[in-house]
Nucleic acid binder design. Sequence first.
DNA 1: CCAAAAGTGTTCACGATACACCCATGC
DNA 2: GCATGGGTGTATCGTGAACACTTTTGG
Lengths: 233, 233
Amino acid sequence: MTSVPPSDSSAIRVAVSTVIFSLRSRPGADALMIPLVRRTRDPFDGSWALPGGWLDEAEGLDDAAARTLAETTALSPSYLEQLYAFGDVDRSPARVVSVVYWALLRSDLVDAQRAADDAPENVEWFDVDDLPALAFDHNRIVDYAVWRLRNKVGYSRIAHGLLPDEFTLSELREVYEAVLGRRLDPSNFRRLLEGSEALIPTESFRTGKHRPARLFRYNSEVELADRGPGFPG
Amino acid sequence: MTSVPPSDSSAIRVAVSTVIFSLRSRPGADALMIPLVRRTRDPFDGSWALPGGWLDEAEGLDDAAARTLAETTALSPSYLEQLYAFGDVDRSPARVVSVVYWALLRSDLVDAQRAADDAPENVEWFDVDDLPALAFDHNRIVDYAVWRLRNKVGYSRIAHGLLPDEFTLSELREVYEAVLGRRLDPSNFRRLLEGSEALIPTESFRTGKHRPARLFRYNSEVELADRGPGFPG
DNA sequence: CCAAAAGTGTTCACGATACACCCATGC
DNA sequence: GCATGGGTGTATCGTGAACACTTTTGG
């Protein structure tokens, strides 16, 4: 507990990266996707890596995560939470401590942004179940982020962060199925969420090939989930 | 995503601190205790703070946590897990990112160590429900660590990290009661843990004022809990 | 014998699962 | 009409909580 760090401490850099989840509609089941950035210099020149950047001295960790996320996707997340701080000595040629966040993006906004022409360069979306070998320890980081997302979807109500404001119960169930990787019983799923206070039914219906489905909206007064210190208390 | 940090990034220091939990026997219910260190220089000269220190360039985050923990208590933890990275700009006069860990110590080892004369100076144990105003944002950090511990005790089997190798079911139940802050039904508690694979009965008994209680040992083959990336997968 | 903790057995409420069934729409 | 997804009802199973009861010790 000295108050002045030893001189070699200044050789440690702090970076912030983010695992950004969104959904892509697929014929069978929706796929969990994340954006990766192609590196343009060593180390790992040419490899895909998580979006991120150096922590600026004048910004907090959360701000840095939101900033690098916006630089990558030009979008703001519907959910953002710290994942873990990675600081093994050998995880990079230089000594870097990476504070990693994970985020959810509404799939409709991602689709709109990809269609627009101001989409960032060097960014590509990958299915989390079909990733290339990433730079640094980023494969391990993504694995852990997926594990945390699956876990959290099991006991909290954050899945709607991947959907537009209004959605049908089937759409929400498909989000759960994509994240959890297994089928859910439609009727039990319905009861589970109608019983909770989390969903507010609207008077609108989504018309399709079959019977129209009622649209729901999320109740913003419901506590989503613990996002770290300060939220639980 | 530059490969060289901007010059002002070097002004950010990385510290590692640990919230170390142990139990003190009390007449009514056991109390959750943590050790604090009295600061001997500014900022917050004279205030109590979490044990910790600067991250050395040659050690990983986990190693740094274990090192500062050993420097404070001269003991090795029975459980150690990263809690959160705190990096608000204004949490300290200098720019410091603190990677905080939390740990469990067996209460018998703590008692023995306090009785010995090589106990570290400037360290004192405090009841987590009766803390003074701490340096920096450390009160908030402790609150979050307590919340995480309570949470984790609810769904995993880490409570024995606060007990010796062998213990009675009543002792284990009292640990849960101290951590959770509420009474548990002895008979249901017994069934819950006897049903799991976590406990191994021994042929020894603890004799006291009443009927002797069988001693149990923890099954080390049982997965304790997720401690971060690498453990779940 | 009595008090108190150790340990056993029984019951009940509730949530998750499985699944049978009706409803409304496009074709 | 019929296929299909939307939506309702109901039986079952496993788990946790509540609690009555027996056992074994010290005093």
